[in-house]
Amino acid sequence: MQIENRLAEIGVTLPNVPKPVASYLPVVRSGNLLFLSGQLCTVAGELKYQGKVGKEVSLEDACQAAKIAAINSLAVIKQQVGSLDKVKRIVKVVGYVASDPSFSDQPKVINGASDFLVEVFGDKGSHARSAVGVAALPLNVPVEVEMIVEIE
């Protein structure tokens, strides 16, 4: 319960796992690795942000959207393995940012997820990462985050 206590300390409550919006599984386990499908910025079943970053969505809101997607990812992990204390390492984060063509700060957006993971897990939260600008994302969200996580 150390990680969940840490979440409580920083005021984060894990949501129910969002239902997939298409034909896929939220997570697939292979050995000690969890491959998480992309998570969106849903809060209580509703999209918190919509639109392109650099146009309808500010950099600050996009960072928050990335953090929300990471929180939703933690909910998926907990549902899969029962406790976030079983996380040995966040291995990789891939963040997709629906961007206005003039926007080029995708890495700053995905820092919203990365910084949160390090805040929660410490060194185990440091990870390899890609931050990719895209023309559009499902449901017109500004950010989608997927992860690979090693568990004990």
Results as ranks from 00 to 15, higher is better:
Q2M: 15
Q2W: 14
E4V: 15
E4I: 14
R6L: 12
L7R: 08
L7H: 09
A8R: 14
E9W: 14
E9Y: 14
I10W: 13
G11Q: 12
G11S: 12
V12C: 06
T13C: 09
P15M: 08
P15E: 12
P18Q: 02
K19C: 01
K19Y: 10
P20E: 04
Y24T: 04
L25V: 08
V27D: 14
V28Q: 15
R29G: 15
S30C: 13
N32Y: 14
L33V: 14
F35K: 03
G38T: 11
A44T: 08
G45Q: 03
E46N: 08
E46P: 01
K48G: 05
G51H: 07
G51P: 10
K52G: 05
K52L: 11
G54L: 05
E56I: 01
V57I: 09
V57W: 03
S58F: 08
S58W: 03
D61H: 07
A62T: 02
A62C: 04
A62Q: 02
A62W: 09
A65R: 00
A65V: 00
K67N: 03
K67E: 12
K67M: 08
N72Q: 07
S73N: 10
I77R: 01
K78F: 09
K78A: 03
Q80Y: 01
G82S: 07
S83P: 13
L84Y: 11
L84F: 11
K88I: 10
R89T: 12
K92Y: 14
V93Q: 05
V93M: 11
V93T: 06
V94H: 12
V94R: 14
V94N: 15
G95A: 12
G95F: 13
P101A: 01
F103I: 02
S104D: 09
K108H: 09
I110A: 01
I110S: 00
A113H: 02
S114G: 00
F116N: 00
L117M: 03
V120A: 05
V120C: 01
V120W: 06
F121Q: 00
F121Y: 06
F121M: 02
G122R: 02
K124G: 01
G125A: 07
S126M: 12
S126D: 13
H127W: 03
H127G: 08
R129H: 14
R129I: 08
G133T: 08
V134L: 06
V134T: 09
A135N: 15
L137I: 10
L137V: 11
P138V: 10
L139P: 04
L139F: 09
L139R: 08
V141A: 10
V141P: 04
V141M: 00
P142V: 01
V143D: 05
V143R: 07
E144I: 14
M147R: 07
M147P: 10
I148Y: 04
V149Y: 06
E152Q: 13
